[in-house]
Design a protein around this nucleic acid. Structure first.
Length: 620
DNA sequence: AAAAAAT
């Protein structure tokens, strides 16, 4: 059976060690540790563990060299292992593992361990182009970053870095970063990576398309590579991932998995994805082959936990992508179950990272249940580059929407130039509405497809592929596609039906304006959307967009009582730590600065980045 | 009221 790197190393280490670790199962150990049923596991870690250290269940006591993330050196074991050095073996296995031997003691371990890892880059055989080749991404406009306001709060915030080189990531990971053609870290990466490497919990708020996935994947992979001697319990069925990444939709989990696999290529760190709507057996087989990082949607994960096929006992890293969505009404119970009612180590003994482009204060408050002494990070917009997404609002009566859309599509068709059809993503409110609009578009000669929760997973994935490839350059979607999905070449996002929440609008239009392309977002506004008038107008103004006079009138007329759609404060930029609010007094002395002026939350919609073509995906 | 997420 193939296992992950940490697993293999742990195993060989423990097998080579003197019969030191005599846990409650010590006498049963033969070639592999006996399975310990959950109720017999000693779940009380030593009390003198630093508060920020992850859980170390007793059977893991034979692990060496882990000093705890906040406790200075993580290299207590002595010299740094020569991990991932180029040209070593087929899997970039660490010298330590090879030297320790013992792989062949695992049933099937040797053969499977040597199996060549599929190259997820698909361009060549995975060689790093040391010259950085034709510099596909020289188009990245990093100057645009210089003006981005960054807000951090919390105790002892680690300083940001300016280059990947000055971050102590593993060499094998650095090679993958080069393969991905990431030359410099984005602002959220520059700030978040040192924070996570320092072992701190984090609530991070950064624009759509600004590199959040990599910001939490890099330090997780790096951290797992360093923890050489993690001893995980092993049962015939249960697996014990070290990191868990949750996301609100299946397609987003797939996308994160694809990205994470690139970053983890030849590091020996195994990434597995589990989500609903797909046969569970294949996912179970993948899990059995070993997993360090599990990417999942909540429902399927709960299923796996209830079947005891996955245990969260060894989780050291928990990342929630689209965290505000994960903690809103629909998802919160499931997330609480996973995080608080299964066997996941509590805050302080795991590292928790929450990422999103939006983060309403109420949700921040909720989220603080899952965090320990966390750092809040907000990477705001750059005023001058926000016009990468042009936002338009048009007053369109319900009955005129279809013909109006038709006009837009015709106009767009005429501007098609160099062969490649540009893509249009149309958001509607309901699944039924999606089907009906798709059908109408097809009947009228516009090749369209649709993605929503009433379609089978096969149909959903097919629709996404067909859209990405340009075969059907129009995709009609519900909010299932609103968040996180990185679809290159989306030129136009149409809010055929506006959402009822300004944050959803922010995420929807964030599907365009990525990778340095200019983006266009058009919203159809009518009497049904009056509750959005003010927040929409405020947001557009914040993003230096032209606000139609009629919208300003509705906005000023709109009666509200501080409703959730209102962006208060018209802040200089997004993301404010709710702990800075006067109303929040439980935590004291976090800041010298006292209360802020109470600004809005979230990050203005349209900072599109200025990334050049060729910059890889999953940047949410 | 709707969408998403397990079978």
């Amino acid at each position: 059976m193939r296992t992950s790197w940490a697993d293999s190393v742990a195993n060989s280490a423990s097998e080579n060690a003197a019969p030191a670790s005599s846990g409650n199962n010590g006498s049963l150990r033969s070639s592999r540790p006996a399975y310990v049923p959950p109720h017999l596991r000693n779940r009380t870690p030593s009390a003198d563990l630093p508060a920020s250290s992850p859980a170390v269940p007793s059977q893991a006591n034979d692990r060496v060299g882990y000093a705890g993330p906040a406790g200075g050196s993580r290299w207590a074991g002595g010299s740094r292992p020569d991990y991932g050095r180029p040209g070593y073996g087929s899997g970039g296995r660490p010298a330590a593992a090879a030297a320790a031997g013992g792989w062949n003691n695992r049933s099937g371990g040797w053969e499977r361990g040597r199996e060549r890892e599929v190259n997820p880059f698909g361009n060549d055989d995975g060689e790093v182009d040391s010259t950085f080749g034709e510099q596909e991404n020289t188009g990245i406009n990093f100057d645009a970053y210089e003006d981005i306001p960054v807000e951090t709060s919390g105790e002892n915030v680690p300083p940001s870095v300016n280059t990947f080189a000055e971050i102590d990531l593993a060499e094998a990971l650095n090679q993958n970063i080069r393969r991905c053609k990431y030359v410099k870290p984005t602002p959220v990466q520059r700030n978040a990576i040192p924070i996570i490497l320092a072992g701190r919990d984090l609530m991070a708020c950064a624009q759509t398309g600004s590199g959040k996935t990599a910001a939490f994947c890099f330090p997780i992979i790096s951290g797992i590579m360093r923890e050489q001697y993690v001893q995980r319990p092993r049962g015939p069925r249960t697996v014990y991932p070290l990191a868990l990444i949750l996301s609100p939709t299946r397609e987003l989990s797939c996308q994160i998995h694809d990205e994470a696999r690139k970053f983890a290529y030849q590091t020996g760190v195994k990434v597995v994805v589990a989500y609903g709507g797909a046969p569970i057996n294949q996912q179970l087989r993948e899990l059995e082959r070993g997993v360090d990082i599990l990417v999942a949607t909540p429902g399927r994960l709960v299923d796996l936990l209830e079947r005891a096929r996955v245990s969260l006992q060894m989780i050291r890293y928990l990342a929630l992508d689209e965290a505000d969505r994960m903690l809103d009404m629909g998802f919160e119970p499931q997330i609480r179950k996973i995080v608080e009612q299964m066997d996941m180590p509590p805050p302080g003994r795991r590292q928790t990272m929450l990422f999103s482009a939006t983060f309403p204060k109420e949700i921040q408050r909720l989220a603080s249940d899952f965090l320990a002494n966390y750092i809040f990070l907000a990477v705001g917009r750059v005023g001058s580059s926000t016009d990468l997404i042009i936002q338009r609002v048009e007053y369109v009566h319900e009955t005129d929407k279809r013909s109006h859309l038709m006009d837009l599509l015709h106009a767009q068709r005429e501007t098609e130039t160099n062969g490649k059809q540009s893509l249009t993503l149309v958001f509607v409110e309901t699944k039924k509405g999606a089907d009906s609009l798709e059908n109408w578009l097809c009947v009228n000669g516009f090749p369209a497809t649709t993605i929503h929760g009433d379609r089978t997973q096969q149909e959903r994935e097919m629709a996404l592929r067909s859209f990405k490839s340009g075969k059907t350059p129009i995709l009609v979607a519900t909010d299932v596609a609103a968040r996180g999905l990185d679809i290159p070449h989306v030129a136009h996002v149409v809010n055929f039906d506006l959402p009822n929440d300004i944050d959803d609008y922010v995420h929807r239009i964030g599907r365009t304006g990525r990778a340095g392309k200019s983006g266009l977002a058009t919203a159809f506004f009518n009497e049904n959307n009056m509750s959005m008038a003010r927040s929409l107008a405020d947001l557009m103004q914040e993003a230096n967009q032209e606000v139609p006079a009629w919208l300003t009138r509705y906005a000023s007329r709109a009666s509200y009582s501080g409703g959730k759609n209102r962006r208060t404060g018209g802040g200089r930029f997004g993301g404010r730590d709710f702990r800075r609010e006067g109303s929040f007094t439980r935590v004291t002395d976090y800041y010298g600065g006292g209360n802020s002026s109470g600004g809005g939350y979230g990050v203005p919609a349209s900072y599109g980045g200025g990334y050049g073509p060729g910059v890889a995906s999953a940047w949410d």
